[in-house]
Simulated assay, not measured.
Amino acid sequence: MLVRMMYASRALPGLEEDALMNILRHARVANPQQGITGALCCSNGIFLQVLEGGRMAVNALYNRIANDKRHTGVVILSYSEIRERRFAGWAMGQVNMARMNPGLLLKYSETATLDPYAVSGEAMALLFDEVVATAAIMGQS
């Protein structure tokens, strides 16, 4: 059974770009072995990630992520059974937030700042879908 999970978290102060790149490199190697696909947004210290795959694999990965000391405030925004993947070709894509139109954020939230803690999980899922569709995806492999 396939599931899709979206979660948000806050990076600890001082998390460097190199650390983020290491996280992505590791995901791009490990995720295919577990049948996991997805995409990650990181903006102003906020992580927003979608994971897709088998229920047990996604749950196990989420538990590891939730216990990672590089971030806090980990919260599940949505979790659902799915018929097909949206990110089937991406072991872990990274959304290039610099290419995103700030007006897109205003469509779903009060401000033009990515803040998944201030909007519903449904609104974040819709925003994420549009961000992925309109912003450049880096490292789609």
Rank of each mutant, 00 (worst) to 15 (best):
V3Q: 06
V3A: 03
R4E: 15
R4N: 08
M6G: 05
Y7W: 05
S9C: 09
R10L: 09
R10D: 07
R10S: 15
R10E: 13
P13T: 08
L15S: 01
E16I: 13
E17G: 08
D18M: 00
A19E: 15
N22V: 14
N22S: 15
N22W: 07
I23P: 10
L24S: 08
R25G: 05
H26V: 14
H26G: 02
R28E: 02
V29N: 01
P32Q: 03
Q33R: 10
Q34W: 06
I36P: 04
T37V: 05
G38A: 05
G38N: 12
A39C: 13
A39I: 07
L40K: 11
C41M: 12
C42Q: 03
C42P: 01
S43L: 15
N44G: 13
G45K: 05
G45L: 15
G45A: 13
I46W: 09
F47W: 12
Q49P: 00
Q49M: 02
R55S: 14
R55C: 14
R55M: 15
M56P: 02
A57T: 05
V58Q: 06
V58S: 11
V58R: 09
V58W: 07
N59L: 11
A60M: 05
L61N: 08
Y62V: 13
Y62N: 05
N63E: 08
N63D: 04
N67F: 02
R70E: 14
T72H: 14
G73R: 02
V74Y: 09
V74Q: 03
V74G: 07
V74P: 04
V75A: 14
V75R: 06
I76V: 15
Y79T: 02
Y79Q: 04
R83P: 09
E84D: 15
R85D: 11
R85K: 07
F87T: 11
F87M: 06
F87R: 05
G89W: 04
W90H: 00
W90F: 04
A91G: 10
G93W: 05
G93T: 00
Q94M: 15
Q94N: 06
V95R: 03
V95T: 07
N96P: 06
N96G: 10
M100W: 00
N101Y: 07
P102K: 02
G103F: 01
L106M: 01
L106R: 04
K107E: 01
Y108H: 13
E110H: 12
T111L: 00
A112H: 04
A112Q: 05
T113F: 11
D115G: 00
P116S: 02
S120V: 06
S120E: 05
A123G: 04
A123Y: 14
A123N: 13
A123E: 14
A123L: 11
M124H: 07
V132M: 09
T134W: 00
T134N: 00
A136R: 10
G139D: 12
Q140G: 06
Q140K: 13
